[in-house]
Amino acid sequence: MDERIMQIVERLRTRKPLQSLSPNRIWDEALDQEIAAIRLPNADTAEAIALKAGLHLWNDSLDISHSYAQLIEHDPTGGYWHGLMHRMERDYSNAKYWFRQAGAHPVMDRLQQRASSWLRAEANLEQLPEGEIREMLEAVTKQGRWNSAAFTDGIARQEQRRGSDTSRQLLEELQHMELTELVAYTLDAAKGR
């Protein structure tokens, strides 16, 4: 795959600060133009379209990401990207609809393992205030598969000002893991692996 794509992925993966739960503007306009300029030999496949949707979303370009995701909403990966985009624009019920359409996406197992391990090792959940967000994060450490709907509900509560700064940081880190895992999966699919 094109070295430029890998450079774009690395720039997005290491961006600081982490992506907001509800971005309100494109993070890097020049990078968005670079993503738009990517030419893939299999550009009309669901995998290539999903890659563009994902990279634009990771750069907080929600409208462009949405236009790509709509082209492949029949595809589980396209449905997952579609759900993430709606979650970031705070359309939580629509996000959960698209997560249901994505079904038991293969990325959910890897994401669950990574998220639960990280929460157990790095997050001090006992320091969070009692409430729905803490309960959701504690559930992540015990559940067998990533639950996009429950995570969406946790983000909704945070965005309704029911969470602390610490819970926001934890949710942003988990969202970053989710994006990283889904981009990796989408990139492998676009490469034909």
Rank of each mutant, 00 (worst) to 15 (best):
D28A: 10
D28M: 07
L31W: 01
Q33D: 10
I38Y: 06
I38N: 10
R39D: 06
A43I: 11
D44H: 14
T45Y: 01
T45S: 11
A50F: 07
A50G: 02
K52G: 03
G54K: 06
L55R: 01
D60E: 13
L62K: 08
S65M: 07
S65V: 09
H66P: 03
A69L: 10
Q70E: 09
E73V: 12
H74S: 13
H74I: 09
D75M: 02
P76K: 05
G79R: 00
G79P: 01
Y80P: 00
L84G: 02
M88I: 03
E89M: 09
R90N: 12
Y92A: 11
A95T: 03
K96D: 02
F99Q: 02
F99T: 03
Q101Y: 06
P106M: 06
M108R: 00
D109P: 01
R110L: 04
L111V: 06
A115C: 15
A115W: 00
S116V: 03
S117N: 15
S117L: 10
W118L: 07
A123Q: 01
N124D: 09
N124E: 13
E126Q: 15
Q127S: 11
L128N: 10
G131L: 09
E132V: 08
E132D: 12
E135Q: 15
M136I: 03
E138F: 02
A139V: 04
V140A: 05
T141M: 13
Q143V: 13
W146R: 00
W146Q: 00
N147C: 08
A149G: 06
F151H: 00
D153Y: 13
A156S: 11
A156E: 14
R157G: 04
R157D: 10
D165E: 15
T166E: 12
R168C: 07
R168Y: 06
